[in-house]
Design a protein around this nucleic acid. Structure first.
Lengths: 368, 368
DNA sequence: ATAAATAATGTAATCGGTTACATGACACAG
DNA sequence: CTGTGTCATGTAACCGATTACATTATTTAT
């Protein structure tokens, strides 16, 4: 006991609501002192682990309440070497894809009492590494999204002991735990759908060069063409690129009667370009996208696409990572690559040249 | 010096890349030992504060590199009582509004070397408080978005010493540092624009009841009507609500010749409903939204709306909060309410019944 | 009644940084 | 050659939790 007087605190004049004035944050020792117990007991009550008398528990909880005590996270993490935080490194934060992903991750994280640190790297490999380094030690595990295979693997390296879950769309992860969309299968399904609805000249607007998912989708497209020669134009996943690509496709003769765009935004851009040029969709040209962003159901004609349940994927990612963290240095390294299979969602944009109708099948909330 | 032998480390057989085997994470003491300096010097080098010989600096940095040393964040935060992390509590994570906001915040955070913890509360006041409590001590400051005035104020209370920046759309923040959209001014501008383009029966589709921003926009609408009686139908910010509301408006006679929806998603829903019913936009009815989500420029007719630079708002928020954190218990409490004025973006949906054309004035990138 | 087992609580070491203060080295003036 | 000031570095206390182990109280067995 120090020299400080020990008498019971006189309820402060301003303490009308029964709270301490608290000029400085209370520590576990303050709580212990006020509850007349040891710091060990306080810790035990707060972590619900050991056997504790009901009396003690009450006393501690009252003191906690009165002092508005919140454990110091840093101190806790210092002794437990856990942070209850997981880091997410994204190539970008723009667009509905990432917002959906974060939503799913947040859901899972909350459910497990974890916190989420997000950071974007603007697609730059070097920045990805920087983000990673700065997160190291701050999180119990990380989820890294990168369109480049190399970046993701480097990441897992730099991370050292920190578990890393890779989500970069590549299936071949060299034994790293990962989750990936079946881009190949999705592309094949898209082409087959177009073929099945009678299309014969199917073009592809591909994603950014060097982007792993773009490559795989393009490859899937080419492999599914039944005899027809591939018609591929470059894109970069933006709506503007889709617009430009469609313009180039219209200049071809014979003009393609179907377009498989590597993502929805490009598909939308293409649809607008066709519309502006008086080329009717789906009558003259069918359009199919990839992702099923909410927008796909809001445009007219509504867009046929391959649905990836993005939020669900984010949820799974977090859950999987938490598993990895708990496994720790255990055996059973969970080295699997989980594959998410996109589902074909047929809407108006690929109708067989005679169907119409209105079926706004999804809605999107927006706040403010 | 302990009993452990002190001889120079034999370069490990696996250390081909010049790195330590590192079975456990290196501490500052390991670095000090390897660099043959004291922990104080290591700390000084790493924090760049004090005077340090070039020789020492090199030795330390080499050791850091070799051991892949990363300071333990918890320990650091324990002694400095800083976390270099800021928390963001959102009512929801759904939709483009929040994704844009987070994007802007991330940008600013990175620029200042801060980390971002995000969490959503699903609009529930109780959950907002829970999120807040669990973040307390984990962050240096928080940004709280809440559509309910009460929640935001409670939040600032619960936070205790942690600085809180409120962004809830309410202008009257009782002296709390805040950033808010000028919802009233925006609504007035919307109505005035409709009046100026010759509309005479202007209806309003309002946002969710109890939502502060919805209330203010509705109030602004009513106040700007020049003599005309208000025509207000309920909504909840979703596209589906806009659709339903428009259906009800079409049943009125005489039918309104203009609709001001409290956000873009409802405006889009309304436009679709009109379109399906054969009511032409803008010829028969003008539609104006609020927010300027990327989608607004992608639909046909393109949507006139009030642009709020959401990402910029997020950036400002973080910057402002960092200011608050640095000010600390200083005087000059920075109690201002910063106001963001939305800008009218005129597009096709409010053309004066004779204009047409194609002007896809914005594009949106999407990744995968 | 006493020993042994069990339950509840307390004491103090520990985690890994930062930093006030102490110490040592060195230069230069006298 | 000594004293003094400056600069670089080292020592050790401290931040606030957790938890192994020690201690005390309580129950049960004999």
């Amino acid at each position: 006991m120090t020299l400080r007087e020990e008498h019971v605190e006189i309820s402060s004049p301003s303490g009308l609501n029964g709270h301490a004035p608290a000029a400085k944050a209370a520590t576990i020792r303050d709580v212990a002192e006020r509850a007349q117990v040891s710091v060990a007991s306080v810790s035990r009550v707060l972590n619900g682990s050991d056997a504790i008398t009901e009396t003690t528990r009450r006393r501690v909880l009252d003191a906690v309440e009165y002092l508005r005590y919140v454990p110091h996270v840093g101190a806790r993490s210092l002794s437990t070497s856990r942070t209850d935080t997981i880091g997410v490194i994204l190539p970008d934060l723009y667009g509905e894809f990432f917002s959906e992903l974060i939503r799913g991750m947040d859901l899972a994280a909350r459910a497990h009492g974890k916190h989420l640190i997000v950071s974007s790297s603007h697609g730059d490999t070097e920045e990805t590494m920087a983000a990673l380094r700065s997160m190291r030690g701050r999180v119990d595990g990380m989820i890294v999204l990168s369109p480049h295979l190399r970046a993701a693997n480097l990441a897992a390296d730099v991370a050292g002991r920190t578990p890393v879950l890779v989500m970069n769309g590549g299936l071949d992860e060299g034994g790293r735990p990962s989750i990936a969309v079946d881009n190949h299968g999705g592309a094949v399904a898209a082409v087959q759908h177009l073929v099945a609805t009678g299309r014969r000249r199917i073009a592809h607007i591909r994603g950014a060069a060097g982007n792993l998912e773009a490559d795989i989708r393009a490859e899937g497209y080419a492999s599914a063409l039944d005899g027809q020669d591939p018609i591929i134009v470059e894109g970069d996943f933006t709506q503007a690129a889709g617009h430009r690509a469609a313009t180039r496709l219209m200049a071809l003769s014979p003009r393609p009667d179907a377009v498989f765009a590597a993502n929805d935004m490009m598909a939308l851009g293409a649809m607008l370009a066709f519309q502006e040029a008086g080329v009717r969709c789906p009558e003259d040209v069918a359009v199919i996208g990839f992702d099923d962003v909410p927008l796909a159901a809001l445009v007219r004609p509504t867009l046929t696409t391959l649905r990836v349940n993005i939020a669900e994927m984010g949820r799974r990612g977090v859950e999987r990572l938490i598993g990895l963290v708990q496994a720790g240095a255990n055996a059973d390294p969970d080295t699997a690559c989980e594959i998410v299979r996109p589902a074909l969602v047929v809407r108006q944009s690929t109708a067989a040249a005679s169907t119409a109708g209105s079926n706004p099948d999804r809605t999107a909330a927006s706040p403010s």
